[in-house]
């Protein structure tokens, strides 16, 4: 199946932006990643089984592209995260603290944490998207949660 590109953009633009930002830590790079990801969907000949397949594919491509941006020698945009955060309006100081703490996690923990807590993916699905084993996902989630708990203390429940 193939979805209309405009409909996909409407549905997933912000999700892809959030996952890309969580890796790039930069607004312009994240927006470039979102655009490139939709362009890749537009030009790919892949056939998709269902909407969930499309969503997972888009997220995987966005993650890979964002990683490529991070590892690129010729990285274009270098606006500091702190500067960008001044433009964001958080609901509460705790939200800001959580956001900041997540962004300080190592990239591999951050990505797994984001897919679990923001995208509601299960361990098995995260393993499929990141092309790593389920035990590896569990380890990354566990270490990420531990680091969040250590920094956020009572603001982060020990619920998973």
């Amino acid at each position: 199946m193939r979805e209309q590109i405009q409909e996909l953009i409407r549905q997933y633009q912000n999700n892809l932006y959030a996952v890309a930002f969580s890796i790039c830590k930069n607004s312009e790079d994240a927006e470039d990643v979102v655009q490139e990801t939709f362009i890749q969907y537009y030009t790919t000949k892949n056939e998709f089984e269902n909407e969930q397949h499309i969503r997972a594919w888009l997220i995987r491509v966005a993650i890979n592209k964002a990683k490529n941006v991070n590892h690129s020698f010729w990285r274009k945009h270098k606006v500091p995260l702190e500067e960008y955060m001044e433009t964001l309006t958080f609901e509460t100081p705790e939200s800001r603290n959580l956001f900041e703490t997540v962004m300080k996690l190592p990239e591999k923990y951050r990505t797994a944490i984001h897919l679990f807590y923001y995208e509601d993916y299960a361990v098995k699905e995260i393993a499929g998207i990141l092309k790593i084993s389920e035990s590896n996902v569990k380890a990354r989630l566990s270490r990420g949660r531990k680091l969040l708990g250590q920094s956020l203390k009572e603001e982060w429940d020990d619920d998973e």
């Binding site: 633009q13 912000n14 932006y17 959030a18 930002f21 969580s22 607004s27 994240a30 927006e31 979102v34 655009q35 964001l88 309006t89 958080f90 609901e91 509460t92 705790e94 939200s95 800001r96 959580l98 956001f99 997540v102 944490i113 984001h114 807590y117 923001y118 603001e155 982060w156």
Partner: peptide, 13 residues
């Protein structure tokens, strides 16, 4: 909590 924190992220373009 996580979703609320990250809901501030929107592509502006």
């Amino acid at each position: 909590k996580y979703k609320e924190a990250f809901s501030v992220l929107h592509a502006s373009r």
